[in-house]
Computed example of a mutant assay.
Amino acid sequence: MTESVLSGRPTQRPGESIDPGQRTKRPAAPAFATLSSPYFGILVAGFIGVMLISNITGTKGVLLFRFIHFTAGPFTMNGLVTDGAFYLFPAAYILGDVISEVYGFRVMRRLIIAGFGVLLFASLAFIITIHLPAAPFYTGQQAFETVAGVVPRFLIAGLAGYLCGEFLNSLVLVKMKQRSGERKLWARLLGSTVVGEFADTLVFCSIAAGALGISTWADFTNYTVIGFLWKTLVEILVMPITYRVTGALKRREPSYQEALRAIEAAERQDAALQPSQS
């Protein structure tokens, strides 16, 4: 009996038996789950990342377009007062549109709940970190509290607006797609944006207005309407990019192409049955 050079296992010559004690066991192959989509993980990371970063950048007040001054009825505008997340927050709705259009409402619903959990956990982590005793050499405690400090009313407003806005945005888009199929993507993006952004802005402003010092209906209306129009305008301006991203993802996502082929096959079958039924 000899030993194989490559495998290290005993080899058997003709007419020779192998001692059972000399047999070596193969190591068990490790088990791993498989990812069904190569793109979904990137979208999830982008969606939750944008929401998480927005919670920090949104703590800075920003004044844009200082040269704009006008009054129209109850609306008065002296520049555009917004926060540091104005350029990030619409991206969450754009990613939500893409995910809802390609993967459906059930997937987006689970993602919204997961994002809610991440935002809540981040807020709790900031609170805990703020209250941890600072080292003697650490001089940034006050600055850290200013940036990462969580105001309970703002936290509730942000989470409530996020849940209402994202759920309605996804639901409206999917319901419209059930009626129009692959056609009229522009209408779905616009319709879901208007409903989702309006719900988000109204809920957030209704809860947070008092904490911001807003005490009159005129100021509340101004704060809510201008914020809603600004967010909606940003999404409309980037709609061509949303179109391109959605189209590219549909072409490259294997499961989406399989679903399209299944629908086309069902339509052909229905068309073939109609003459015989008539």
Rank of each mutant, 00 (worst) to 15 (best):
M1Q: 14
T2D: 13
E3C: 11
S7C: 07
S7I: 06
S7Y: 10
P10W: 15
R13S: 12
I18D: 10
D19T: 08
G21W: 10
Q22D: 15
K25G: 11
K25S: 14
R26G: 12
P27G: 08
A28R: 12
A31R: 14
F32C: 08
A33G: 12
A33P: 10
L35G: 10
L35S: 14
S37H: 02
S37N: 13
F40D: 00
L43S: 01
L43Q: 00
F47C: 01
I48N: 06
L52A: 12
N55W: 06
T57Y: 06
G58C: 02
G58R: 02
K60I: 12
G61D: 08
L64R: 06
R66D: 15
H69D: 13
F75H: 02
F75V: 05
M77V: 15
V81H: 14
Y87M: 15
F89H: 04
A92Q: 02
I94C: 09
I94V: 14
L95V: 05
G96Y: 01
G96D: 01
D97K: 02
S100Q: 01
E101D: 05
V102D: 00
Y103W: 00
Y103L: 00
G104A: 00
R106L: 02
V107Y: 00
V107S: 07
I112N: 03
I113E: 04
G115R: 01
F116K: 06
L119C: 09
F121V: 15
L124P: 08
F126Q: 10
I128E: 07
I130K: 08
L132G: 03
P133C: 01
P133K: 01
A135E: 11
G140E: 13
Q141A: 11
Q141F: 08
E145C: 09
T146E: 10
A148G: 11
V150F: 00
V151N: 09
V151D: 09
P152R: 02
R153A: 11
R153Q: 15
L163N: 04
E166A: 11
F167I: 09
F167E: 06
L168M: 13
N169Q: 08
V172C: 05
K175M: 11
K175E: 12
K175H: 08
K177R: 13
K184M: 15
L185C: 03
W186G: 04
G191E: 02
S192V: 01
G196F: 05
G196H: 04
E197C: 15
D200G: 09
L202H: 03
C205M: 15
S206M: 10
A208Q: 02
A209T: 02
G210S: 06
G210C: 07
T216I: 04
W217T: 14
T224I: 07
V225W: 02
I226H: 03
I226N: 04
G227F: 04
L229E: 07
W230P: 05
K231D: 03
K231C: 03
T232D: 11
T232R: 06
L233Q: 05
V234G: 08
V234C: 11
E235R: 08
L237H: 09
T242V: 10
V245T: 01
T246F: 02
A248R: 14
R251Q: 11
R252E: 06
Y256M: 09
E258T: 10
A259F: 03
R261I: 07
I263P: 03
E264C: 00
R268V: 07
R268N: 10
Q269E: 14
Q269L: 15
A271S: 05
A271D: 05
A271N: 07
A272G: 04
L273W: 07
Q274C: 07
S278C: 07
